[in-house]
Write a protein that binds this DNA or RNA. Structure first.
Length: 441
DNA sequence: ACCTCCCGCCAATGT
DNA sequence: ACATTGGCGGGAGGT
C-alpha cells in the first residue's frame, strides 16, 4: 500500500517541469550558489549523475526559488497554481512555503489561490508585531484578541493542548476534543472565537510565528529544535506529538534558513545542531547550511540578540491621519492592490538611483545580488543593518509628492487591515502601526 | 542508528 | 458536490 508513495516519489516531475525549474533558476539574476536548484553535488560523490537527491527538493531550496521568482518589482498577485507549475512542485509544497512567508509578513493572502507579494519590507512590522505579542503573553497580560484576517500574527500562547495523556498510548483524541482554545481566557473575554479553530492551532503558520517568538524573546539566540518543540508544546510531551512537532520545525527552520532569518550551527558544547537567529546581522549563507563561523564583527555567540529591542524609540504621536477607519475593508482586492502598487512604486523609486542599491537588510533574500553594498554612501551596511535602520533609510525617499500620495492610501489600507484584527484593542495599531507609518510620512 | 524532512493521503474548510 | 487548504506521520535519504 504505502509503496505507492515511495514509487511516486521518484518521478514526481515530468522532464518538462524539471526544465522549467532549471529555467527559473537560470533566469534568476544571482542565486547564491549555496542552493543552486539544478544539481547539488554535495561534495561526497556517491551521487550518480541521475541520482535523485532530496536536497533538490528541499523546502529551503523551494523557498529560495520562490523568492527569487517573485521578489521583484513587477510581481503582482501570485497564483498558487502558477507558482507550483513554475517551480515544478506539487501544490501541497507551495502551501508550506506560502504559509511561513505569510507569517513573517512577506506575503498576504488576498483570496483563494491568490497571494500578494509584500516583500521583505513587510518583515519589520510583522516581527515587531510578533515580538509585542510575545512579550505580552509572557507577562501574562491580556493576549490581544486578534483573529482572522488572512494576515498572520494571531495570538496564541504556548499552545499546549493535550497534556495529560496519562497511561499508555491511547491516541483517542485526535480529531475529537473540541478543546477550543485555552488561551484567550482573560476575565470577561469578549468572545470565544473557537469555532473549532482547532485546526488552526496547529497550522504551520502559527507554529512559525511561535518559533520566531522564541527568538524574539529569549535571552539566547540559539535553540535546538527539540528544545523549541518542548517549549512550544507544553511539557506534556507526548513523545508522539513531539516527534511531529519537530518534523514541522524542521520544515520551518529550513525555509526560515533559506530566508536567512536563522542559520544552523553546531552548538559549541553539546555538538548538537541548533538554529541561531540572525537578527540584525544578515550574512549570506554558505554552501550547505552550517555556517562557517565568520561571525560578523561584533557578533558573539552567547550575546543575546537584541533584535527589535528598541522598538520603543518610535514616537507614539500619530499625526493627523484621522483615525476614521471608514469601513472594515478586508484588504481584499482594493486594499491589496493599493498596497502592492505602493510597494512597487517605492521599490522602483528606491531602485532607480543606484541599481542594486536597495537594501533588504538582514534578511537579504538569498536570491538577491550580494554586492548590493557597493554604494559607498551608506557605509558598511552589513553589520549595522537592522530593520529599524532599514525603515529609517526609507524615509528620505518619500519626500516625493506622488509617493506621499500613494502612501496615504498605503496607510489607509494598513489601518483598516490592522484594525481588523485589532478590533477591540485599537491601542495596538497606535503603538505599532501608526508609529511606523508616521515615520514614513 | 539516529537525524532530517520529503511525500502525499485524506480530513477539515471553503465555494 | 467539488475545490482548496494543510495536518500528519510513514519511512527513505543523509550522515
Amino acid at each position: 500500500m504505502a509503496t505507492a508513495a515511495v514509487m511516486a516519489a521518484i518521478p514526481s516531475s515530468s522532464p518538462a517541469d524539471a526544465a522549467e525549474v532549471v529555467a527559473v533558476a537560470v533566469a534568476v539574476p544571482s542565486l547564491p550558489q549555496r542552493q543552486q536548484p539544478v544539481f547539488v553535488e554535495g561534495r561526497g560523490a556517491k551521487l550518480r549523475d541521475h541520482a535523485y537527491s532530496r536536497k533538490q527538493k528541499s523546502l529551503g531550496l523551494l523557498c529560495s526559488n520562490f523568492v527569487a521568482l517573485y521578489n521583484r518589482d513587477d510581481v503582482e498577485s501570485i497564483g498558487l497554481d502558477d507558482a507550483a507549475r513554475r517551480l515544478g512542485v506539487e501544490r501541497r509544497r507551495i502551501y508550506d512555503i506560502v504559509n511561513v512567508l505569510e507569517s513573517v509578513g512577506i506575503l498576504v493572502r488576498k483570496a483563494k489561490n491568490r497571494y500578494s507579494w509584500i516583500g521583505f519590507g513587510g518583515v519589520p512590522m510583522a516581527l515587531r508585531e510578533l515580538k509585542e505579542r510575545a512579550l505580552r503573553e509572557k507577562s501574562g497580560l491580556a493576549p490581544l484578541p486578534v483573529d482572522e484576517p488572512s494576515a498572520a500574527i494571531m495570538s496564541d500562547d504556548e499552545d499546549e493542548d493535550k497534556m495529560g495523556e496519562a497511561d499508555g498510548d491511547t491516541e483517542s483524541e485526535k480529531l475529537s476534543q473540541p478543546v477550543d482554545n485555552p488561551s484567550d481566557n482573560k476575565p470577561g473575554a469578549p468572545r470565544c472565537r473557537l469555532k473549532s479553530d482547532h485546526r488552526k492551532e496547529k497550522s504551520l503558520g502559527l507554529l512559525t510565528q511561535n518559533f520566531v517568538k522564541l527568538f524574539l524573546t529569549m535571552e539566547v539566540d540559539t535553540i535546538s529544535l527539540d528544545e523549541a518543540a518542548k517549549l512550544l508544546l507544553g511539557e506534556g510531551h507526548a513523545e508522539n506529538s513531539m516527534r511531529t512537532k519537530v518534523r514541522r520545525l524542521y520544515d520551518i527552520a529550513n525555509v526560515l534558513s533559506s530566508l536567512n532569518f536563522i542559520d544552523k550551527i553546531q552548538q559549541a558544547d553539546s555538538r548538537k545542531p541548533a538554529f541561531r537567529w540572525l537578527g540584525s546581522a544578515g550574512k549570506p549563507k554558505t554552501e550547505n547550511g552550517v555556517t562557517i563561523a565568520v561571525p560578523p564583527p561584533g557578533k558573539t555567540m552567547s550575546n543575546k540578540r537584541a533584535f527589535g529591542t528598541e522598538l520603543t524609540n518610535i514616537d507614539i504621536n500619530r499625526s493627523r491621519l484621522d483615525s476614521t477607519i471608514p469601513k472594515k475593508a478586508k484588504l481584499t482586492q482594493s486594499g491589496g492592490d493599493i498596497l502592492k502598487n505602493c510597494k512597487v512604486s517605492v521599490q522602483k523609486q528606491l531602485g532607480q538611483g543606484s541599481k542594486g542599491g536597495f537594501v533588504y537588510g538582514p534578511f537579504h533574500p538569498s536570491g538577491a545580488r550580494k554586492q548590493d553594498l557597493d554604494n559607498g554612501n551608506k557605509g558598511h551596511t552589513d553589520s549595522v543593518q537592522n530593520w529599524e535602520s532599514l525603515a529609517a533609510s526609507f524615509r528620505p525617499q518619500y519626500q516625493n509628492q506622488a509617493l506621499g500620495d500613494l502612501f496615504a492610501h498605503y496607510v489607509e489600507a494598513w489601518k483598516s487591515w490592522y484594525s481588523e484584527f485589532a478590533q477591540g484593542s485599537s491601542m495596538m495599531q497606535q503603538h505599532f502601526v501608526m508609529p511606523v507609518i508616521n515615520q514614513f510620512l
